[in-house]
């Protein structure tokens, strides 16, 4: 649905709200009024979910996922990732805030028909075979059974398709979950920890699969703890902490806060001088007089000159390439375990 907001559309939407008092619809309407662009397939604004008075799972989360990109959603355990994904799918109702999926209300049949999702550990009927499980979902999605064999082949599960789900290994369950997500040939894929339980070879296969799926017009929203995985697959990444996005951008943008590694003597004077410089952020002092400085790498020469002119001996100055994991850990500070 485009952003064209003509009178006919307004009247239709108003009729909808008169008939259906659903938060999702109201949320959708507010976003329509804000005239966000169609190039974003997911848009949330100040999304909140409070489970109990003392539990705010998502606290003012705003994000935009562009059409055709692979968006990484990363955060420590309990940071609100899964609750956010569930709100995007209409499984959980937001307490407040706005949300729009593919131009539709979250959880609406119009949106769900174009979204494939794999949420956490895949849930299927244990007494049915993999193929029958896909048949059930295909029926609910009004998708032809003809789609089942291709998606089973795509996730390399054809040989075990007629075995009962309860006999599957965790890796096979995960692949069946991916097959189910692909059943509708969706425009948007939402994957929550898709490599859970996979062995290294399975993880590599899944990574390749996701990378291939992310090509072209299809958009992928990928939640994962595995930084290396996200680093290899994602176009953009949003870092979530305490229910809100604390940093969002491409890998290069996230690394733009890359650090300068400086070895200088005397250290205390170097730190005092650096703190006075504009554009220099956090300074961490390490062993052996090494300083890690948060600053634009292009300012290395300027920093060097200022220190040398002040009589400080600079024996090493280089740009440190941060891994996504380092960025993540520095952003979330407490360095919570990622498992």
């Amino acid at each position: 649905m485009g952003i064209g907001y003509d009178c006919f559309e307004t009247a239709r939407l108003l009729r909808m709200t008169q008939r259906i008092h659903r938060p999702g619809i109201r949320v959708y309407l507010r976003l329509k009024e804000s005239k966000l662009t169609e190039s974003h397939v997911i848009q949330t604004r100040e999304l909140r979910k409070r489970y109990r008075p003392d539990i705010m799972a998502v606290d003012g989360l705003s994000m935009r996922v562009k059409r055709g990109e692979v968006y990484g959603f990363v955060g420590p355990n309990g940071s609100g990732k899964t609750t956010t994904l569930r709100m995007l799918l209409g499984l959980v109702r937001p307490t407040s805030g706005d949300c729009e999926m593919l131009g539709e209300a979250p959880g609406s049949p119009e949106a769900l028909g174009r979204i494939g999702a794999l949420m956490e550990t895949p849930a299927f009927y244990p007494y049915l075979s993999g193929r029958d499980n896909l048949r059930v979902l295909a029926r609910h999605a009004s998708v032809s059974y003809d789609r089942i064999d291709p998606v089973l082949a795509e996730v390399d599960l054809t040989r075990r398709a007629d075995y009962r789900f309860k006999s599957y290994s965790l890796g096979m369950k995960q692949r069946l979950g991916m097959a189910a997500a692909l059943l509708k040939d969706p425009e948007l894929l939402i994957l929550d920890e898709p490599t859970n339980g996979l062995d290294p070879a399975g993880m590599a296969e899944m990574r390749d699969l996701i990378r291939n799926l992310g090509h072209g017009e299809r958009t992928v929203l990928l939640s994962s703890h595995l930084m290396g995985e996200l680093e290899q697959i994602c176009d953009r990444i949003g870092v979530v902490k305490d229910g809100r996005i604390i940093r969002e951008g491409t890998l290069d943008e996230l690394r733009r806060g890359e650090r300068l590694k400086l070895r200088a003597e005397p250290v205390a004077e170097a730190i005092a001088l650096l703190k006075k410089l504009a554009g220099v952020g956090k300074i961490d002092a390490g062993d052996g007089g090494i300083l890690m400085i948060e600053a634009d790498p292009s300012r290395a020469a300027e920093i060097n000159r200022v220190l040398v002119e002040a009589g400080i001996q600079v024996s090493e100055l280089c740009v440190v390439k941060l891994s996504l994991e380092s960025v993540f850990l520095s952003l979330t500070e407490e360095a919570e375990p990622l498992g």
Binding site: L91, G107, P109, L112, G113, I115, A117, M119, A123, A180
Partner: peptide
């Protein structure tokens, strides 16, 4: 009840059919 036990409401409710229809 099994839908709750197995968590199958999640995949079912994220297909095209709405909750009430299911």
């Amino acid at each position: 009840g099994s839908e709750y036990n197995w968590g199958t409401l999640t995949p079912v409710f994220t297909q095209r059919a709405g909750r009430l229809k299911v």
